[in-house]
Amino acid sequence: MENGVVDGVVCSTESVDGSRDVWSCKTSDSASADHLVIMVNGILGSATDWKFAAELFVKMLPDKIFVHCSERNVSRLTLDGVDVMGERLAGEVLEVIQRKPNLKKISFVAHSVGGLVARYAIGKLYRPCKSENVEDSSVSERDEDSGKIGGLEAMNFITVATPHLGSRGNKQVPFLFGLPALERAASCVIHLIFRRTGRHLFLTDGEEGKPPLLKRMIEDQDDCYFMSALRTFKRRVAYSNVGYDHIVGWRTSSIRRDNELPKWEGVVNEKYPHVVYEERCKGYDAEQSETTTVEDDGSDELEEELLTGLSRLPWEKVDVSFHSSRQRIAAHSIIQVKDEIVHIEGADVIRHMIDHFLT
Rank of each mutant, 00 (worst) to 15 (best):
S289R: 12
S299Y: 05
V294E: 06
C281M: 10
R280L: 10
E287R: 08
G266P: 05
S289V: 08
D296H: 13
V268Y: 11
T293E: 06
Y284W: 05
V276Q: 00
A286C: 07
C281H: 04
D296Y: 08
C281Q: 09
Y277S: 06
V268I: 14
D300C: 03
R280Q: 11
V267Q: 10
S299K: 08
E301M: 04
D285S: 09
C281E: 01
H274C: 01
S299R: 07
Y277E: 00
R280H: 08
V294T: 12
V294Q: 07
Y277M: 06
A286R: 14
D300R: 02
D300H: 07
E295A: 14
L302K: 02
C281A: 11
E265D: 14
T292M: 10
E287H: 10
T293M: 00
E301S: 11
V294I: 14
D297W: 08
E278A: 08
D297R: 11
D300W: 00
V276F: 02
G298F: 02
T291P: 05
E270H: 13
V276E: 03
E265C: 09
C281G: 10
T291S: 14
G266K: 06
S289Y: 09
Q288A: 15
E270L: 10
R280Y: 12
S299P: 00
Q288M: 13
E301D: 11
K271I: 07
P273L: 00
E265A: 13
W264K: 01
R280W: 10
S289T: 11
